[in-house]
Design a protein around this nucleic acid. Structure first.
Lengths: 215, 215
DNA sequence: TGACTTCAGTGACTAGTATCACAGAGGGAA
DNA sequence: TTCCCTCTGTGATACTAGTCACTGAAGTCA
């Protein structure tokens, strides 16, 4: 654990008021997370609100048979909405969060983030905005699962990936299949089709995205 | 629009403090909603927080082709979480809400429900709890769509229905198919199978539930 | 260089769900 | 009663996605 640096926090959370920043500095810790490390597990008790300072987290759901699907990505400057909600009553996490890249998260003790809701207007707004944003992303994910075929879901997935980490998608087909709760062969075939339209080029262990909108 | 009666509100929202109840009485209206009437439409601007006083609402998502799927039911004493979130910035609804039975909703102007977050502890808790609860229900729905076959989803759907409106499910197979984003014939077949196990009995326009746990 | 491992491509088959077509049952209204 | 409409049941067929079995290509390491 490190002491957070004020400048880093300001850069990612410019909307926070001075006194809130001071409070964060005084009472919270930074945790450095390695690539692939789990930040949160289903069933784990949550005693801190999690803010992301750097890196990229994926938030996903896992069932009892080890199947998973991606809910959304968290980028620096955002918060894990679940950690805020559970916070309120010391409850268990419903989700998994894993670092996609090396990352730094700020851990704010639950009772403080709770108090701050009343104390700091900017904190309150941030929390409400986070809820709303995650809710919307979740709805989008839900839509794509409920209404779309796997081909469209894959497209949606690739687009989302491009948005958070650029046009070189460094994933194996296997990993993609896992996040979409599908199987490698099926994903391979669909990617192949996409390649034939010219939208992407396939390589070993990465996908080069040209233009996903034309498809 | 009617003037809300204090006793009715207390009955459904016993956790609200006196002064909050007075504020609700002074500034909000009750709207009576008929069975089948839409309370909220995707794309509509939301200027009020919606509390449910009596009746039953279903909250669902609809895509551009008219497909839909059920997110969850709202019972008296609960609030539409989306209406609270949108409230904050006068935004558009992402969802549909329709009265399953005749219902009464309380409409609280957005700017007030916003102010009350700071002013009334009980309101603040209520809002946070609502967020959390809806989020969890949404996650459950998501799970069942992502991980389960239609047979299990149907079971999940029936259970949920029994919980909110009893063991006589007054729905046609067609309506169920719609809410699960499936087709009538398939639902008919699955229900038939359930009937054969003895879990339910089928009738015209309603389903008699005996025991869904044994299946 | 050769052995080994991981990743990707492909055909054949299967399971689950959707779609189509049609028949019959139940209930309401004239 | 008769007509009509809605709801339900069922077979045939098609399509999507998942599974299995196998091949070959790319990268790694001794």
């Amino acid at each position: 654990m490190e002491i957070p640096q004020k400048e880093d926090i300001i850069k990612q959370f410019p909307q926070f008021e001075q006194s809130l920043l001071d409070d964060i500095l005084a009472h919270s810790a930074i945790r450095e997370v390695e690539e692939g490390e789990e930040v949160m597990r289903t069933g784990q008790y949550i005693r801190s609100t999690v803010l992301l300072l750097s890196g990229l987290l994926k938030v996903y759901r896992e069932d009892d048979e080890g199947n998973e699907f991606l809910m959304y990505y968290l980028e620096p400057g955002s918060a894990c909405a679940m950690s805020m909600m559970c916070t309120a009553r010391d409850e268990q996490s419903q989700i998994m969060a894993k670092a996609v890249t090396e990352a730094e998260v700020i851990l704010i003790p639950s009772h403080l983030s709770e108090q701050w809701l009343a104390k700091y207007k900017s904190w309150h707004n941030f929390v409400i905005a986070s809820y709303r944003q995650r809710f919307e992303e979740l709805l989008q994910t839900l839509d794509s699962i409920a209404f779309k075929g796997l081909d469209e879901r894959l497209l949606f997935y690739l687009k989302r990936h491009v948005k958070v980490s650029g046009k070189e998608i460094r994933l194996s087909h296997q990993q993609i299949a896992l996040e979409l709760n599908s199987s490698r062969e099926v994903i391979s075939r669909l990617l192949k089709k996409l390649e034939q339209t010219g939208a992407i080029t396939l390589h070993r262990n990465y996908i080069e995205v040209h233009d996903l909108e034309v498809v």
